[in-house]
Design a protein around this nucleic acid. Structure first.
Length: 295
DNA sequence: ATCGGTATCCATC
DNA sequence: GATGGATACCGAT
């Protein structure tokens, strides 16, 4: 079956709403400089302002107007405010995303070096699937041990995104299995389902340095951001900001390992493998999560 | 505020 | 050892 056929066939609960939210996020993230009004956006998407407002708020946890605010450069700078404490806090030694933050996506991970992967994972089977999510089409890859890859695709770019991922594990056997990956998407993009007692299992395959960087990213709380420089400090290599940037860019499980929470020191969103617009959208979306969690 | 050039460091190949 | 960044910094607009 072709990828397109899969996408056409794939049904998710509230699929239409998902699409509406995705398009709204995209429109605002792309056009935030022009400060589009609710009415304008609603007209573009051919829905009533009321419906847009309601649907969007339910998913994103904040109104389109608030999201627009949450997406500005100014806001990104503000996210940098409290990053030092959590990164340097010894209670995060376990490498978990941390106790006591019930509203964060809770993750346990195991790491595999490329060497381990080659011997231990020879002929490893990776299941993959495509699913709509607020940031476009998500491509998920999982082994029996847990999630090992998450990528994003624009419409039409699904095959390329999968290919981009597949290159990382040339030896593995890839099998499409929508059912196997469907459960992951639902959990990952529905904050209501984040539970500390049922951690999401992920497998990080990378060099020692990369894994240390990715672990550091996992310690940045939802709704906050850190800088490449500070991540470098957190792993004990204060001068390695640039190398950190390179490692962040290789993160195979985007969003779950929150590489979008790493910014330049100025607060600029310096880069993102899946597009700066997506990075901006994720930070805005998370701001909404953080706000509703605080209530 | 933004832009561009430069210094420098480190992980990779 | 060579290479090249999802950097940081500084100075000019």
């Amino acid at each position: 079956m072709t990828i397109q056929a899969t996408l056409d066939r794939d049904i998710t609960p509230a699929g239409e709403d998902y699409d509406l939210v995705r398009k709204t996020i995209e429109r605002i993230s792309l056009d935030y400089r022009a400060q589009p009004s609710l009415e304008e956006i609603a007209a573009d998407l051919q829905v009533s302002p009321g419906r847009l407002q309601k649907t969007f708020s339910r998913w994103a946890g904040l109104t389109p107007k608030a999201f627009l605010q949450a997406v500005t450069l100014d806001h990104a700078r503000r996210l940098l405010g409290h990053e030092r404490l959590p990164l340097l806090d010894a209670s995060y030694e376990l490498g978990l995303s941390g106790p006591g933050r019930l509203h964060d996506l809770f993750v346990t991970h195991e790491a595999m070096s490329p060497g381990d992967f080659k011997t231990g994972g020879d002929g490893l089977e990776i299941q993959y699937g495509f699913h709509p999510c607020p940031f476009g089409t998500a491509v998920l890859l999982a082994t029996s041990r847990g999630l090992c890859g998450l990528a994003f695709a624009d419409p039409g770019g699904e095959a390329a995104a999968l290919e981009d991922m597949a290159r990382r594990w040339p030896g593995a056997r890839l099998v499409q299995d929508q059912q196997a990956t469907a459960g992951y998407v639902e959990r990952i993009f529905s904050p209501q389902q984040w539970r500390a007692d049922q951690p999401l299992r992920i497998v990080m395959i990378g060099t020692d340095f990369q894994v240390r960087v990715w672990e550091a990213l996992l310690k940045i709380p939802l709704g906050q951001a850190s800088t490449y420089h500070d991540v470098a400090c957190a792993i004990g290599k204060p001068t390695a900001a640039r190398a950190v940037g390179a490692a962040v860019g290789r993160n195979p499980i985007s969003f779950v390992v929150p590489c979008h929470r790493a910014l330049g020191k100025s607060g600029a969103l310096t880069g993102y493998h899946w597009g700066i617009t997506r990075k901006r959208a994720m930070l805005g979306w998370e701001t909404g999560c953080a706000q509703s969690a605080a209530v």
